[in-house]
Design a protein around this nucleic acid. Structure first.
Lengths: 241, 241
DNA sequence: CCAAAAGTGTTTACACTACACCCATGA
DNA sequence: TCATGGGTGTAGTGTAAACACTTTTGG
């Protein structure tokens, strides 16, 4: 422990637990992005032994004076340059033998980020790469399991909470959103039904502009009305798609 | 670290992470039970300083050579004498200042147990007590938050998985099950609709016997057909109530 | 015989599904 | 002008919700 850590924690007092074991605590981040019709994952080449050079999630040890979720935020900011992003704890991996490097517990977090909305230089400096989920390589340690668990959580969540907006640009079209959901659930959806249900929640603001990147005709852009959504949510409304 | 710990982990090799901080890791158990129409929680008087004597969840430190989920099982068995029970990880609490005793992370687990199905002596020896959820006292550290988080998870889960059976005796009546769901959701349910939906899954076996404790007429007892449920589940069926 | 809980069916509204065609535009 | 994706409406079906009375039996 560093001196500054001790000061921040105000650890003048006794360590009441000193007869027990201490363990390394890490956090690993499952970073989802969406681009080009595909759900992607940001991974990089592990620098730390053991398994250095292997594709891996991005993670870090938790410092003695650091909240676990802040450790995850720190990692994400270091890599992407983004300080405000959607981040949730997913699950904790605590088997004694999960890390051959030493006993180390990992509190996994998953993040949703808009691809292109981050500092590309930072990402490149870290040897990071956006992999399409479908052809993800074998990752270090138990990271593949972390990804599949997080994906299951994402799927469940996407059904009941408007997290899709975290993965699309601020202005997006209905067909884009549909493609996102199709990527998350790996199945096709009916465009009429999808549009109907999405708009039925009345939390989208239709803009004048069109996005012509997807077709000659162009599709109207929308914005998510987060104030209205918060209102609805507080009065017991349940987003569902 | 004890010698036996070192042997079990086979830690002949280098500690690759030695320049990082280590942290105490604990697990705390949110133990739900159901009795007398009420959802209850098993808590006890904390023995460890700080906060010794305060009502608290049951927990323990995780040993260096111990899986986190096994630590939770160990705690539950020590208290209740039950080795086989429904146990799930709920959430990890990792704020730097959450425990004034020292930096300590807690991986919370929740368990569902049938009240009366455990060794009462063991429980009494530990100064434990079944508290009705509604009038739960203030608990040590962040344990009240742990309880409310776990309750939220339980509610979500009860809707889509047949966890009700974990909280009732092996033989139970439909009205008992309804009371359980009413306790979980804190609202009244229509007995006709509830019965219809519950039986529609075809995973209950109606017995000849009646339970007369609840009324003069008596209610038929049922058993959960877990083999059939597993079959259904494997072929993609989704329990929902 | 009566209080108290168990058990039973039907109707209604709403939400989900399936499904096919026209529109706008750039090349 | 045509190829491409955007956008629209409706009928049918199944599921959830609302709702009231009869049955049983111990006291």
């Amino acid at each position: 422990m560093t001196l500054s850590s001790a000061k921040k924690m105000n650890l003048q007092h006794k360590d009441f637990y000193s007869k027990n074991d201490k363990i390394y605590v890490a956090t690993d981040c499952i970073i989802f992005g969406f681009d080009d019709g595909d759900l992607k994952l940001l991974i990089f080449k592990r620098k730390q032994e053991p398994d250095a050079g292997i594709w891996s999630l991005i993670g870090s040890f938790v410092k003695l004076d650091e909240d676990v979720n802040n450790a995850a935020r720190r990692v994400l900011e270091e890599i992407t340059g983004l300080s405000e992003l959607y981040l949730e704890q997913s699950k904790t991996y605590g088997n004694a033998d999960r890390d051959p490097g030493y006993r180390c517990l990992s509190v996994a977090h998953y993040a949703l980020i808009r691809i292109g909305d981050y500092d590309k230089k930072l990402v490149e400096e870290h040897g990071a790469y956006w992999y399409t989920l479908k052809d993800l390589p074998t990752l270090a340690l138990d990271h593949n399991k972390m990804v599949s668990d997080a994906l299951a959580i994402l799927r469940r969540k996407a059904r009941y909470e408007p997290i899709g907006f975290e993965l699309l640009p601020e202005k997006f079209t209905i067909p884009q959103m549909q493609k996102l959901y199709e990527a998350i659930y790996q199945r096709e959806l009916d465009p009429r039904n999808f549009r109907k249900k999405l708009l039925s929640h009345k939390v989208l603001i239709k803009l004048e502009e069109k996005d012509k990147s997807g077709s000659k005709r162009g599709a109207f852009l929308y914005r998510f009305d987060s104030e209205k959504y918060e209102e609805l949510r507080e009065s017991g409304y349940n987003f569902e798609i």
